[in-house]
Design a protein around this nucleic acid. Structure first.
Lengths: 341, 341
DNA sequence: TGCATCAGACGAATCGGTTCGACTGTGCTC
DNA sequence: GAGCACAGTCGAACCGATTCGTCTGATGCA
């Protein structure tokens, strides 16, 4: 079933069918109706490849996700969900592409084979090869997160440095003097993962400014690592009375370790950080945290990308979010700590 | 940069370039080398849309996921990851399509617009409109899960009925006489969600066969619901000493509620079920459970789909998995239960 | 020497849309 | 009543690949 067949059945030419559908030229009401009837009864839809070929655009966008798709954090999952949602509303399809290692063929196929009109990149490093590649291939892109030199490109990011600083401020205001930062995995930070670096900087700055003692712990993105990390804090750093974290995936383990150590939250131990709201609320008691508005960010990324595709020469848009800290129940005034061991 | 430009620069015709790349006809070594050099220095890749139009296939497949993408369970996430992985290995791109509600436009675009060569459907209902739609549109498909009448179509599924039966057997062998089934959400089961129904049937059958008392609880797919569900069990059903579950997403809440009730696992309370291995291991203590081999299932689904696309008339393949129960640490002999309240 | 064979290259058709230019017939104005 | 504008339609070119049929020149063999 193609446009020629529709034309034949309605007794008009192919171009008339096309114009009837697109509305780009006038078509008399009677023929328009006749064509529409034929289409309705045959269930015709224009072939996406043919249209893409002629129009020079695919009506699809690529979403490049980290390779360990089985280990996506909740925040990343929200990005994916919101990008799909926003793309769907704009009648765009989403091609998913894992990146890194052997998966890079997929990225190449999509970008150089012009399978999409633009891509959204996640989990950006300060110096990111995918950004370079998209630029050199002339493929429009928007990043969720930003590189070390993010000028002249489109991005949406959260100001981790400022937010972690505010977490420290909040804890210091409550009287905490020894504060830990639970960062993401060592390798990730070493590889130049933006939020990891910026959280580290913001933490160092705030700790210095407030005159408190800070210690940073890198922690892999899973519950076991979170558990081990807090166990080490409890055992080796008994002065620490509060932690700030950007590591969502470790939270369930963090929770278990704190409970096992017999520390009441927030009575004896405070915890805060920068996480997706869903996980802040899953925590028990609910986490006082800067909620990353992941859904908004995904939608904004799509919006920026659509605009950038439409007007490649317009100045690139950028959005740095500084969401407020939502006060919930996981932080409180410092107290003398009684370790259960 | 297109094939004509490559042809011009290498001083041959377009067809020669095409044959040099595909190898479908002989091309002399010297011209082949010349063409390859031009391609290497220009970074040329054939335009996906043009190729799809001519060949009649897109080299892409669709993955239809549940609409609430922000709430994907770990198992679903593993399906997505493994499908992408397997597709990538076969040099196929993956188009993600949420289904249900207003998202159905996306499904229609992909299927009827021939944007993909085949689709993989997840979260199958006993009577599933997407299956019907794919069939009527003549779009090859494979389901992860199976409908109520799964004859004549390709699918991969886990035998929830048998597995939940084995869980009951295991618990009964340990002496448990009052066992609860924590199922998925009421609405989901009511809507004909396969695993929910089959777990229910398998549970009823095994409970009857073993002469123990069983109670079923439907529970929404999140931690809060799991917590509430176990609280109800503890409060209103003090005889229950063990649960079997297929509801992964509720597990963190289940854990919290059991701990809060002061019940030791497995000393005073046993828990088992059918879940993705990752979550069985995240549980504390690690969960004795039938590990759903989600990664294998995704890969198998892709394999079946590729074969089905290549040979639409071959008999459809099906695979019903009955993974063994992995004995870990969350089940033990029944003991007198001391409620902490 | 003549003819069949074959490797290697080319040209043109094709896939299914979109879009530009041109054509026709009607109604209006001067 | 000639000229013009315009709504409505058609035919053909085009997007960038693949592929079939055909052509050419070299080689082999009788």
């Amino acid at each position: 079933m193609n446009i020629g067949e529709i034309a034949r059945r309605s007794g008009v030419s192919r171009s008339t069918v096309s114009y009837a559908l697109s509305g780009k030229r006038a078509v008399s009401e009677s023929t328009r109706r006749r064509i529409q009837d034929v289409i309705d009864e045959s269930g015709y839809r224009p072939n996406a490849a043919a249209r893409a070929l002629k129009e020079g655009r695919t009506r699809a966008l690529g979403l490049v996700i980290p390779p360990a798709a089985g280990r996506l954090t909740f925040m990343q999952l929200e990005f994916v969900a919101s990008v799909m949602d926003a793309a769907g509303r704009a009648d765009l399809d989403v091609l998913l592409s894992p990146s890194g290692g052997e998966h890079d063929r997929s990225f190449e196929r999509i970008v150089v084979g012009r399978r999409v009109d633009g891509v959204i990149l996640m989990e950006i490093r300060l110096d990111d090869p995918r950004v370079t590649r998209a630029q050199s291939a002339g493929m429009p892109f928007v990043t969720i997160g930003r590189t070390g030199r993010p000028y002249g490109m489109c991005w949406v990011d959260v100001d981790y440095a400022t937010l972690i600083g505010r977490c420290v401020d909040h804890l210091a205001d409550l009287g905490h003097r020894h504060i830990a930062l639970i960062n993401r995995a060592t390798e990730l930070v070493a590889a130049g993962y933006g939020p990891g670096h910026r959280a580290r900087e913001g933490f160092a700055e705030a700790v210095g400014r407030r005159g408190v003692l800070g210690a940073e712990f890198c922690c892999a993105d899973d519950a076991q690592a979170g558990e081990a990390c807090v166990e080490e804090i409890v055992r080796a750093h008994p002065d620490i009375t509060a932690v700030a974290t950007i590591n969502e995936a470790a939270l369930p383990g963090v929770q278990r370790a704190i409970e096992r150590a017999g520390l009441a939250i927030p009575g004896q131990f405070s915890i805060t950080g920068v996480v997706a709201r869903h996980w802040a609320e899953q925590f028990h008691p609910q986490l006082t945290a800067a909620d990353v508005p992941a859904m908004d960010m995904g939608a904004t990324a799509v919006e920026f990308l659509i605009e950038h595709i439409a007007e490649p020469d317009a100045p690139p848009k950028q959005k740095l979010l500084v969401p407020p800290i939502s006060l919930r129940s996981s932080t409180g005034p410092v107290a003398v700590r009684h370790s259960s061991r």
